[in-house]
């Protein structure tokens, strides 16, 4: 098991009870998709895994190690092994694509060298390699905010690949992209999952994408897991339970 989560609770300072006792585990090499309405706790769940936020109670085990409340150097080490891709790409806008990708390596670079931006040839080679994997090696010198949304998300994926992640988290990676681009971005995740054996946990909204890419699905509703199983088993009835009676499935291809 690469990841084991047990009875996880998160209460924010404003009193919002975002996760209410979530438990599940993830095997190495899985492509796990988390679905659920906005505000169901999907983002909180992902951020509890790589400890961008600290859970209120419960445990998160990563590679057998309890990381629920670790701090400092130890936490940074764990973070550097878990890649993350965001809905809003979160690139540094005024910087080049290349330096954005190298940012993914910060966890294992010296503080001083990373500030004067003196990197070894290997780091550059690795960065170009990561850019080639997502097919934008030719854009390395371009300012990152001059790229299209899909291209920016590919840079973000390349950045997370720089970490050689054992686990890749994706928080609604295609929610601000058009359908065609969404599919191509999802294909990069699929390739990373299959070629490198990287475990992927991804928040998604569109069921057609879920059925196509997920090996397993978890559905959250109001901070609790209400469905866990194969993507093909989500039928009309389950869909209505997850998204509410009013919902109707929208197809994207």
């Amino acid at each position: 098991m690469i990841l084991e989560i047990q009875n996880l609770h998160k209460v924010y300072n404003n009193g919002t009870h975002a996760l209410k006792g979530v438990s599940f585990s993830v095997k190495e090499g899985e492509f796990l998709v988390v679905i659920g309405l906005s505000g169901s706790g999907k983002s909180t769940l992902l951020r509890s895994i790589n400890r961008l936020i600290e859970p209120t109670s419960g445990t998160v085990r990563f590679l057998g190690k309890d990381i629920t409340h670790i701090k400092g150097e130890e936490l940074r080490k764990i973070k550097s092994q878990i890649g993350m891709v965001f809905q809003q790409f979160n690139l540094i806008k005024r910087r080049s694509v290349l330096s954005n990708v190298i940012n993914g390596k910060l966890g294992s670079l010296g503080t001083f060298n990373s500030i004067i931006e003196k990197y070894s040839d290997e780091v550059y080679k690795e960065a170009y390699n990561c850019l080639d994997i997502v097919g934008i090696g030719d854009k390395a010198k371009v300012r990152s905010d001059s790229l299209s949304g899909g291209q920016q998300q590919r840079v973000a994926i390349a950045r997370s690949l720089m970490q050689n992640p054992k686990l890749l988290l994706a928080d609604e990676p295609v929610a601000s992209l058009d359908p065609a681009t969404s599919n191509s971005i999802m294909q990069y995740f699929e390739r990373i999952n299959k070629d490198f054996g990287t475990t992927v946990i991804c928040n998604l909204h569109f069921l057609s994408l879920v059925r196509r890419y997920a090996t397993r699905v978890i559905a959250l509703k109001a901070g609790e897991i209400i469905y866990e199983g194969a993507p093909s088993d989500i039928n009309e009835a389950w869909f209505k339970t997850i998204y509410g009676e009013e919902a109707e499935e929208v197809e994207i291809r």
């Binding site: 790589n50 961008l52 940074r76 080490k77 764990i78 973070k79 550097s80 092994q81 878990i82 890649g83 993350m84 965001f86 809003q88 790409f89 979160n90 690139l91 540094i92 806008k93 940012n103 993914g104 390596k105 910060l106 966890g107 294992s108 670079l109 503080t111 990373s114 500030i115 973000a156 950045r159 997370s160 720089m162 970490q163």
Partner: peptide, 18 residues
């Protein structure tokens, strides 16, 4: 967002700021 993203790579405080 970018702060969160850089922090998620395991960067330390100084690197995040810079």
């Amino acid at each position: 967002g970018p702060v969160e993203a850089i922090s998620a790579t395991g960067a330390n405080k100084i690197q995040i700021v810079w």
